[in-house]
């Protein structure tokens, strides 16, 4: 047996480097983690919200599709309910926002005349594809929602300017 004695100086050197190394790593790791954080964020399916509307049930007549999501405003958490008018145009699914482009009321399908959206507030009218009918208060077409599908159910994404008009 070789009896190698560790000197007091050596022992202190080893322990201090060891502990110092751990401390440095402890400080650097979170910094590194923060630096590359955006790359690690999981994108929740591009912020699409699943609805209970079956794609197969859609027709060329707009139906109302309700959906909810949680909104956090400072310390105030609230559940926001929104809806969309959804119909099929050939193979394409169109989801329109019901928010009137005049002052933000909710428009209804065939609320006044057939085959049109109608805003009860100031009589705004839109065609089925969301195009505002000239001579009524709205100044632009209804917004559209991005659409996606999951297991046969409709998913709605971000609101985008109308692409049909």
């Amino acid at each position: 047996m070789v009896n190698k004695k560790v000197s007091r100086r050596q022992f202190l050197n080893y322990t201090l480097t060891g502990v110092g190394g751990f401390m440095a790593a402890g400080m650097l790791m979170p910094m590194l983690r923060f630096a590359i954080d955006p790359a690690l964020q999981v994108k929740a399916e591009g912020d699409f919200i699943l609805t209970s509307q079956k794609i197969a049930d859609l027709t060329d007549v707009p139906v109302r599709v309700d959906f909810t999501y949680e909104q956090v405003d400072a310390w105030y958490k609230s559940e926001v309910s929104e809806m969309a008018w959804v119909y099929k145009e050939g193979d394409r699914i169109v989801a329109l926002s019901p928010v009137c482009k005049h002052l933000g009321c909710t428009v209804n399908w065939e609320g006044d005349r057939p085959n049109e959206y109608f805003c009860a507030c100031h009589g705004g009218r839109y065609e089925k594809n969301g195009k505002n009918i000239p001579g009524t208060p709205p100044t632009g077409p209804l917004d559209e929602y991005e659409v996606s599908e999951k297991d046969g159910y409709l998913m709605l994404g971000k609101k985008i300017p109308n692409t049909l008009v």
């Binding site: 002052l103 009321c105 909710t106 009860a120 507030c121 100031h122």
Partner: peptide
């Protein structure tokens, strides 16, 4: 209920 009314008739 009143928030719901507000949502429907926001512009009026």
């Amino acid at each position: 209920l009143t928030s719901f009314i507000e949502q429907q008739f926001k512009g009026r």
